[in-house]
Structure formats: structure tokens, C-alpha cells
């Protein structure tokens, strides 16, 4: 299923550039680079005139406006999924290149078309393979700067609740948040999350049973998770 779903999204897009040149005028539904460009500019128009085309960005306010237009919560999972589909590199910013490539891949060039895709974007969070890919991307996305090797714990907490929302696929998330917020554990819980801890929690959440019965302390889990499990068991 993971293949078929992704192909739904990607096949028309992969074929689109070749065909669009000849058939763009014929089909009303076909992707139009021009439309997409002006769509982007409707959000970035307030930036300095005559500035380089390529470096134009959508800032956080523009993104808020954009979310309003498509009727999506700016701090919700959908906008995260859009950012993922655009392969956005940083939080709160869409560059022109990200927008143009990403929207073309989604095969949308207008608010209306994007809104039709929203169910598809929502479905990402229900699919193991896609959500894992998104989860992996989210780490780099959430870093304050590319050189940083970790993300702040508060950021990580927000993303965990947002991304691992499907309770039947991901377990322990709420409990883990509780642990991270436990004032008694303040000295032991991590202040930042590195990539390894980030990725390990995905595996932990998707593979360890609700009752932790298949958690093996002697295995290679990061110490953070050992301590979490110990905390759970002592409760």
C-alpha cells in the first residue's frame, strides 16, 4: 500500500513537466507553472520589489495568511504535511523554489486545487511508511540552523504530539510527554534531542507494546528510553 499511495501523488507530477508544455492550455486541470508562480507571489508580493526572483520567500505571516486561505490550522498537522511535501528546509519559511517544486509535485497551482488534496495530506499520518519519512524530514526541518545537531526539547514535544497522533500506530507518546514534563525528573530528562534519539523514539513508539512487555533493556535503545521505561515501570 505504501507504494500505491505515494504513486498517486507522484506519478502525474513526474509525467507532468513533459506534457504540460504541449497540453497546458488544453486541460483546465493540468498544472500551470505560471498560475503557481502568481499564487506564490500573492503571498510574497509584499517583499522588496526587484529583488532576486529565486531568493524570494514566504515568511511566517504569509504562511499564516496562506493557511487561512486554505482553511487549515497554522499549527496543525496539515500545514506540516504541506511543508513536508514542499521539502521545506526551515520552519516558518517557504522559498520560491520549494513552493514551485513542491506544488508541482502535488499537482496543484491554486488554493482550490490544494484544498482538494487536503484529505490526501491528512492520510499521510495514517500510513507507516509515509509518516516515517515525514518524521525523519521533520528533524532537519525543526532545527534552529542546519549546523545544529539537535532540536530543543519543547520543539520535539510539539512535533511528537503532532506527527505521532495515530494512537493505533504509535504508543507511549502521551506518557512520554508526561515523563518529560515530570518536575521530579528534571535533572535526568534531556534538554535537547539529537537525531539518534529522535529516530529511536519512532521505532520505540511503533514497536514497543502498550504494556512495555517487549522492551528489552539489554538491547540498543538509547539511555533516554531506558530511563523512560524505568520511570513508567516505577509508576
Amino acid at each position: 500500500t505504501k507504494r500505491s499511495r505515494t504513486s498517486k501523488l507522484s506519478t502525474p507530477n513526474a509525467a507532468a513537466p513533459a506534457k504540460s508544455t504541449s497540453r497546458s492550455t488544453k486541460s483546465a486541470h493540468a498544472f500551470s507553472a505560471h498560475a503557481c508562480e502568481s499564487w506564490f507571489q500573492s503571498y510574497s508580493s509584499d517583499s522588496i520589489p526587484n529583488s532576486n526572483h529565486e531568493t524570494v520567500e514566504m515568511d511566517i505571516e504569509a504562511i499564516e495568511r496562506f493557511c487561512n486561505d486554505i482553511a487549515v490550522d497554522v499549527s496543525g498537522p496539515i500545514v506540516l504535511a504541506i511543508a513536508y511535501k514542499l521539502s521545506a528546509a526551515r520552519m516558518g519559511v517557504f522559498s520560491r523554489a520549494e513552493w514551485m517544486n513542491g506544488m508541482q509535485l502535488l499537482d496543484v497551482d491554486s488554493t482550490a486545487k490544494l484544498q482538494q488534496k487536503l484529505p490526501l495530506l491528512e492520510s499521510i499520518f495514517q500510513d507507516t511508511a509515509q509518516v516515517k519519512d515525514l518524521y525523519k524530514w521533520a528533524f532537519a526541518f525543526a532545527k534552529e540552523s542546519p549546523e545544529k545537531k539537535y532540536i530543543e526539547i519543547e520543539m520535539a514535544k510539539g512535533l511528537w504530539t503532532l506527527i505521532l497522533s495515530n494512537k493505533s500506530m504509535f504508543r507511549h507518546v502521551d506518557q512520554f510527554m508526561e515523563y518529560l514534563n515530570d518536575p521530579d525528573e528534571e535533572s535526568t530528562v534531556p534538554k535537547v534531542i539529537n537525531k539518534d534519539q529522535w529516530m529511536s523514539f519512532f521505532d520505540f513508539s511503533s514497536s514497543v507494546r502498550e504494556d512495555l512487555s517487549n522492551y528489552d533493556e539489554s538491547s540498543a535503545w538509547p539511555v533516554m528510553l531506558d530511563e523512560f521505561v524505568e520511570w513508567c515501570r516505577s509508576k
Partner: peptide, 28 residues
Amino acid sequence: SIGLIKKSVEQLIDKGYMERSKERTDQY
């Protein structure tokens, strides 16, 4: 202590000297 070794492993993963195996989670 095993905890200390695991922490060192995590630091090394972080520094990029080693990584977790893609096939098996308990392998480096």
C-alpha cells in the same frame, strides 16, 4: 556501567563515527 557505554555509543552516533544498522535495530 552499561549506561555509560550506551551514552558513549550515542555520542559517537551523534558525532558520525557510527550509526545504527538499517536492517537490525540492535546492531551498529
